[in-house]
Simulated scan of single mutants.
Amino acid sequence: MERRTFLRGAVVGTSAAAFGGTLMRGAAYAAPAQPGAGPYGALGAADANGIMLPAGFTSRVIARSGQTVSGTSYTWHKAPDGGACYADGTGWIYVSNSEINPSGGASAVRFNSSGSITSAYRILSGTRQNCAGGKTPWNTWLSCEEVSLGYVYETDPWGVNAAVRRPAMGRFKHEAAAADPVRQAVYLTEDESDGCFYRFLPTTWGNLSSGTLQVLKAGSGTSGSFTWQNVPDPDGSPTATRNQVSGAKRFNGGEGCHYANNTVWFTTKGDNRVWQLNLSSNTYELAYDDSLVVGGGAPLTGVDNVTGSSFGDLYVAEDGGNMEICVITPDDVVAPFLRITGQSSSEICGPAFSPAGDRLYFSSQRGTSGSSSGGITYEVTGPFRT
């Protein structure tokens, strides 16, 4: 089903012909997104930062691993990964994980209303391989450990309150999280080749100290209906959480996760897919699959972190591939939005929009050096659709 149905609130009349029939539910599902012209036009030549962008967009470097963040005394962490933005009065904050083991953790950069950096600081320390995570509706950052029996840590983007471990959310190789305020659930991906997709139902919404961990159950196909079943032993020992429930659906390397308007999307890097769960109907389908691209090469490979704009566009970052962030539009068109040049040994991580939607933050985890000590965090500003 086209994302416009969910994200733009389109009204369906007596005929779905205007939408190619994809608004019809039941046995028929929409075809995955196909290549086409992007909403911002072709990429231009690489700028001074080595980034190819459409006309009207500009980039700047926000921070570099091992170097002091401009205007502050704080040294930016290695291997920047998942991230999110938070409104802060007239300015905003961008948080970023550190995917190293040991030490890991997360940091934050604060901006004023004009976009100037005012401070940078640590919000989580002493953890392992913090890969992705997710933003909560109560403005905390869930930082996820991508290790066997890893934890989720709830952190304060303002750096005032101490981070708290949340074992009730399960111990497994966590990747990303996405909060659903309608169903009062947090969805969780698992970075295993035979991983599962989970949701956590807090006993009290807004308090992650206790609750129920559930796993998605479905058939072996790429579309159909799904149900949820409780995971008996969320601590994952002695039996891994993904092996506790018969019929749990397997996904090949869960990565990014994004929720908006009764839909959750998540990516699987092992098969270059973007999955779509339609939560109102409890059905699932493919929003993108590089092996199903018609008539030419796939523009999006190495699918990894994902975020969405207020317009309804999805932005999917590549781990490898052409080092691109690609956009998947509500009309199910996929196209490159930007490309980082000269960094083929890296991956793009942590895409997140500023509260106003006019700035996109992301990192190249290993930069030009190919090492975790060479990470670079960027900002792109321009006429994003909102």
Rank of each mutant, 00 (worst) to 15 (best):
F353G: 09
A16D: 13
G195K: 03
D313V: 08
Q276K: 12
G20A: 15
A287C: 15
M169K: 07
Q129V: 02
L149I: 07
T90F: 07
T14C: 14
V182S: 13
A356H: 08
T204W: 11
E318M: 04
M24G: 12
A240D: 13
G296T: 06
A16C: 15
V109R: 04
A16Q: 14
E347I: 00
V380C: 06
K217R: 14
N261M: 14
C131K: 00
N305F: 04
R183G: 15
A63Q: 02
A163T: 05
C349V: 04
V333Y: 03
V182G: 07
E2H: 15
A132C: 09
Y378E: 00
E285H: 09
S369I: 04
E190H: 08
L286C: 06
T189M: 02
F266N: 02
P383R: 07
G342T: 09
S346E: 01
N130T: 11
I123E: 01
F362K: 00
A46L: 11
L53C: 10
V11M: 15
E146G: 03
L314Q: 11
V333C: 02
T5G: 14
G133F: 03
N305K: 02
F197G: 04
G219Y: 04
A317N: 03
T368H: 12
F57E: 08
F111D: 05
K173I: 08
Y198P: 01
D81C: 04
T68I: 13
S113G: 15
D156R: 08
P137T: 11
K173S: 05
D235M: 07
F337K: 03
P157H: 09
G21P: 10
V95K: 00
P102K: 02
T263E: 14
G126M: 04
P39K: 07
N49Y: 10
G312F: 08
I62L: 12
G295I: 07
V109K: 06
S372V: 14
G375H: 04
A120K: 05
C196A: 14
T127Q: 10
T189Q: 01
F197S: 05
F266V: 02
G56Y: 09
A37Y: 07
G82H: 00
N272V: 10
P299N: 08
L124V: 03
Y151F: 15
F384V: 09
L23T: 13
M323A: 05
T386C: 12
E99R: 01
Q214S: 11
A356I: 09
A287I: 09
A55Q: 13
G133Y: 01
L277G: 06
D47R: 10
G82F: 00
S309V: 10
V293N: 03
E2V: 13
